[in-house]
């Protein structure tokens, strides 16, 4: 009997870097014949000279790797991989952005011809906190993170160290045991990633906590369009603990608009096109871990801005 085929699952929301990681794995396979099941080939960036054959829903590379499309039928895709002669050395499944990776990974525990590798979940450091606070996504993303054996915090080059630590704290709250690694361009060590073991116990999908309870949200809305430099001044040194601050300022004549963004202590303010439906004024939203949000400081800053205008 042939040895069981090790299977690793890559998950993460849209834009977290799953495809970048798949490309990275295929380029750095170093002699391993990896078979990757992807949702679509569209973004698989393989130099033409490395492609040996393209046939229907599979792509064979010169280095021995294969990339196959799931095409909406995981049963068929997985059966075909197991029927391949010779068997690949390692199977990697790229889950869709809203998939529950634990459900997919479980098949490697159930199927005798597969052996379970890690669930690798990518998180976009720039947007993670915001995504987790979106009511439509909170549970799905929280479950993805909770299911991980390895969490890759991606795009770390574009986020300052302080919020990165806060994000790691956030990930730790959602998943007590997974290894957490900071990466850029999803460039993780291929050897480590494929060798990362799965948890020994089955994942209980029914035990999901409410992730919305982990955050606090603060918002501010004013019909008055303060001068942009005053707004910048008021937000210059933000209180600690904020994961994300975001806002829009639209001038009284609706001729100009500015976007305010911050993942650290100092916001960046950029001119942007005036959104068609936006009315004049200032709108701000901030997210922090529960208990870490200094509402009073933020309220005071903004109230000060309003007062100043009146004088």
């Amino acid at each position: 009997m042939t040895a069981a085929l090790p299977m690793t699952v890559i998950a993460g929301y849209l834009g977290a870097g799953k495809t970048t990681l798949v490309n990275h794995l295929l380029r750095n396979a170093e002699g391993r014949r990896i078979c990757v099941l992807v949702n679509d080939f569209g973004e698989i960036a393989i130099d033409a000279e490395l492609i040996e054959a393209r046939e229907g829903d599979s792509l064979t590379l010169a280095n021995g790797c294969v990339c196959c499309s799931i095409g909406g039928d995981l049963f068929r895709a997985l059966s075909r991989v197991l029927d391949r002669v010779p068997r690949p050395d390692h199977l990697v499944i790229e889950a869709s952005g809203v998939a529950e990776p634990a459900r997919i990974a479980e098949v490697a525990r159930a199927e005798p011809e597969l052996s379970p590798g890690a669930i690798v979940v990518l998180c976009d450091a720039e947007t993670l906190a915001e995504r987790l606070a979106e009511p439509l996504l909170a549970r799905t993303l929280g479950e993805q993170i909770a299911a991980a054996d390895l969490l890759l915090l991606n795009k770390c080059d574009s986020v300052p160290p302080e919020p990165l630590e806060a994000l790691e704290g956030l990930l730790r709250q959602l998943n007590e045991t997974a290894a957490i690694k900071r990466v850029t361009f999803a460039a993780a060590s291929v050897e480590e990633l494929l060798a990362e073991p799965a948890r020994h116990t089955p994942r209980d999908q029914s035990a999901t906590q409410s992730h919305e309870a982990l955050y606090e949200r603060w918002s501010w809305e004013s019909g008055r369009a303060h001068p942009v430099d005053k707004v910048e001044e008021a937000l210059a040194a933000l209180p600690d603990g904020l994961l994300r601050l975001k806002g829009l300022l639209v001038s009284d004549d609706r001729a100009s608009a500015w976007e305010i963004q911050s993942t650290g202590s100092r916001p960046t303010v950029t001119r942007r096109r005036v959104p068609p439906s936006a009315s004049p004024g200032l709108r701000l939203v901030a997210i922090a871990l529960r208990g870490k949000l200094q509402r009073d400081v933020l309220d005071r800053r903004l109230a000060g801005l309003e007062q100043e205008e009146l004088v």
């Binding site: 995981l74 049963f75 459900r103 479980e106 098949v107 525990r109 159930a110 199927e111």
Partner: peptide, 8 residues
């Protein structure tokens, strides 16, 4: 129940 358990 569900895909993983049914597949084999």
């Amino acid at each position: 129940r569900e895909f993983a358990a049914m597949f084999p």
